[in-house]
């Protein structure tokens, strides 16, 4: 049954990624050089909507709290995030959008995937060294949420009710999505018409 779910949810995810332009490195790069924030606004709205629905669903007993999967906060998360950011700007793809982009016929995405497979293999080879360097040192208790989510197996960084905080932050994400201008960089004169 889980395989059926994987087919449906994965399929819809790939479809939507393509329809919001996330499989197009043009949109990714223009988001990152702040000349077209269409994608950033869509992502912020998505996070807000998903957060509100999930925590509201938990409060109403409709969403299983045990489905949450919180990753550990470690030094490596920050360092790895920086590395990912650098490569993301160079290539214009991240792991999910790169794979989806290859499926839409982008040849550069195939090279991204090949590099990615080698990069993942390089991490498999150097994992003990990364661990020895202290990159897996926990921050703020590791697998924690900002508030304390009722019934969750994860600790809260604060005692604030995690579900309420999740809804509030979700609303903040939605507001930021609407408040964000279409572009932040470049002169108004240069902003006459986006390339697409």
């Amino acid at each position: 049954m889980t395989i059926i779910y994987a087919l449906i949810i994965g399929g819809v995810f790939g479809f939507v990624l393509d329809r919001i332009g996330a499989t197009n490195p043009q949109y990714i790069i223009k988001m990152l050089n702040l000349t077209n924030l269409h994608l950033a606004k869509a992502i912020l709205l998505a996070i807000g909507v998903a957060s509100i629905l999930m925590f509201l669903g938990q409060m109403l007993g409709l969403v299983d709290v045990a489905h949450m999967s919180v990753k550990a906060a470690e030094i490596g998360v920050f360092v790895g995030g920086i590395l990912l950011g650098i490569g993301w700007a160079i290539a214009g793809f991240c792991p999910g959008t790169g794979v989806a982009a290859a499926a839409t016929g982008r040849k550069d995405a195939l090279f991204f995937i090949a590099g990615g497979l080698l990069g993942a293999a390089a991490y498999m080879a150097t994992y003990p060294a990364a661990k020895a360097m202290g990159l897996m040192a926990k921050i703020g208790g590791g697998k924690v949420t900002l508030g304390t989510v009722p019934g969750a197996k994860y600790d809260g960084l604060t005692a604030i009710p995690g579900d309420v905080l999740g809804i509030v932050l979700g609303i903040v994400f939605v507001i930021v999505a609407f408040a964000l201008p279409d572009r932040l960089s470049g002169s108004a004169a240069g902003a006459t018409q986006p390339a697409e």
């Binding site: 590395l83 650098i86 793809f93 590099g115 498999m124």
Partner: peptide
């Protein structure tokens, strides 16, 4: 870019 992205992603988890 792909190499750096995936090395970073795995380090980050």
């Amino acid at each position: 870019g792909g190499f750096i992205v995936l090395y970073g992603a795995r380090l980050a988890g």
